[in-house]
Design a binder for these strands. Structure first.
Lengths: 360, 360
DNA sequence: CCGGTTTGTGACACCGATGTCATGACACCG
DNA sequence: CGGTGTCATGACATCGGTGTCACAAACCGG
């Protein structure tokens, strides 16, 4: 690969003059500039970022650690792909600044994270973003104080800057909207008990019921992810069966995510029930491949991954430029309800009270 | 950030000795090694890859260009995410060699590719992988001869090393398996006419019919992606309606991909038909979030993205080590049929003739 | 006990950029 | 016309590692 010396020799100038042409940091004579430009093109010269970095001590690199790409822990649950939207938001924001994003993949194996961080530090990244596959509490290995870190879709107990989804408000807004549509008996099939989102969303569900003066009925609440993935359909079938046989059966099933809603569609139809004419269904995530493709399209709440990615990148850039401090804890990001045809509208809602609801 | 000189001073040795401890390329006394190790830990020293790279001229970096992460062209068709599996396969293979993968995102805007390549060249990547969002013919901007390139999920007219899916064989194997299960009237709803896969798969469909002595009936073939995404459901509805009203209606619908199959499930059920008891459905891609979650689970063909990623990385590594030449054109990778409950089995198949079929 | 090999260590140059400083050629000003 | 400032350019040192070479000490077989 040609160096700046080769270019200098070819253009019959000093290396420093070539450098000036490249960086425009000092005036260069017109003819000289033309000769240098020609030599660069002729030799196919590309400056070495390594050499440049040594001198300037600025790498222009941002490190991103994710498990999104090679999720090996739960290969049977490839629902982790939407978290790629987080990476998209980060990428878009970082790209605008001219910095380069280095993405490393942990395969969701936490023991590999320290070596990834070391690789990033060797490249002298200006900041680090850690992206978790789902909303959770994490503990990151130590990172030097002068390298800012932002957690995304996760948080820690040390108050590290973080960006997380507003699970409580999301479920609250959805249930409020269902109530506004005339639903009173709202069943809720939750995700696994051990994840952070489940507790928060159940809180939002109960808050919304309370605000509307509807009594909370434990018979309408059940975890839909008990046991192994293989038994999931059976668990859902049994839960749905039980609820439909209640004295006052539900008029709508809220599901833990859109994937679960897809399963519920199949189960309800196998029982001869039409969606939404006989029974309504709502999801969570706005996982569009499912929510928009399902027939009829699915009412759901957006898990605002792209917006979270943008915010995470912005926070990191602020930290790098010294505009903000690094102990301000999590930023909570909400997403809108997407109202589609999987839920019946029994009574016109007062839309003005529900600014976050979008009608497709 | 501490340098090797700081460590040398703290350990009271020369910088070169610290270098020897780090790289183990020459014997170091026991006590000296201990002192150096202690100094490294105390100072939190991490070697600078930039400085190392300057001397050795080896970056240990592989560049990957993809549009997978921020696909902005067709935001209504977020089906591009599975191509992330390609990245996963590449990542896994590259990771084993100790090299670092740099991922850059084009947002599927081809005009941004040259600048991404330039950034990679500045970092002196040892090789480049270009990943396309779907099987297609591409033309990449020029890259210096000494930087090997592998195309993935695409190919060019210059004979650049490439890895592409075996669309013809995939569709052929699926249809052969359907015939073995007793199906004779096999409808095929294809993807858009202008994509490479459509032509190849239609060829595979006709080949399989021909081999079984079944006459090809144009009435059973229709493009399911005419017009805009909004009208897609209507197009499918009309096509299905027409085919079901034929004198000899199909017993199975082959869909262009699993997403389309998901739509077809909804349409068939809205017509009161049960899958698979009244009518069978098959997809393409083995997009697991859909294929495994659908009720009943979907018979489909794997688009072998992970395997393609692994192969692409291997080809690149071979090129870098000089073990293979860079004009050997495309590698075609096939994937197995996944046989699930969405298709009826009218006659026990002769499985021994169909090695590529997997039963879940 | 001596020549030869191995072990352990340091001095120094070099990789390819760029910051600093010096220098020569003009132009402008009073 | 001498002094001052701007323009255009080059010499040289420097960033943080590592390859080369030199050299002293330890070891080893005969």
């Amino acid at each position: 690969m040609a160096t700046i010396y080769d270019v200098a020799k070819a253009a019959k100038v000093s290396p420093k003059t070539v450098s000036r042409v490249l960086n425009g940091d000092a005036p260069v004579g017109k003819k000289t500039r033309a000769a240098v430009t020609a030599a660069i093109a002729a030799l196919g010269y590309v400056p070495s970022s390594a050499a440049r970095m040594m001198r300037s001590n600025k790498s222009g690199l941002i490190g991103l650690i994710t498990g999104a790409i090679s999720d090996q822990i739960e290969p049977a649950q490839p629902a982790g792909l939407p978290e790629l939207l987080l990476v998209r938001g980060i990428q878009q924001t970082i790209g605008l600044t001219g910095k380069t994003l280095m993405i490393a993949d942990s395969g969701n194996r936490s023991e590999r994270v320290p070596e990834l961080i070391k690789t990033f530090l060797e490249h002298r990244v200006e900041g680090l973003i850690y992206v978790a596959p789902y909303h959770q509490n994490v503990r990151l290995p130590p990172v030097p104080d002068d390298t800012p870190v932002v957690l995304t879709n996760c948080y820690d107990d040390a108050g590290t800057p973080a960006v997380i989804p507003d699970d409580r408000r999301g479920q609250h807004d959805l249930v409020s909207r269902l109530i506004a549509a005339g639903h009173q008996r709202i069943a809720y099939l939750t995700l696994r008990e051990d994840i952070v989102a489940t507790g928060l969303r159940r809180g939002g569900y109960r808050d919304a019921l309370g605000e509307a003066g509807i009594a909370y009925d434990p018979a309408l609440l059940q975890c839909g992810e008990i046991g192994s993935p293989e038994t999931e359909t059976q668990v859902l079938w049994t839960a749905i069966d039980r609820m439909l046989n209640l004295d006052q059966p539900p008029t709508v099933f809220c599901c833990g995510n859109d994937r679960q809603a897809l399963k519920v569609y199949g189960i309800l139809r196998s029982r001869g029930l039409a969606v939404p004419d006989d029974i309504s269904v709502a999801g969570y995530d706005n996982y569009r491949v499912i929510a928009e493709t399902l027939y009829p399209p699915l009412t759901t709440v957006e898990l605002p991954y792209t917006a979270m990615g943008v915010r995470a990148a912005q926070r990191l850039l602020d930290l790098i430029s010294g505009e903000s401090r690094n102990d301000t804890g999590p930023d909570v990001i909400g997403g809108p309800v997407y109202w589609r045809q999987s839920v019946t509208e029994r009574r016109p809602p007062n839309v003005s009270q529900l600014k976050l609801v979008r009608e497709d």
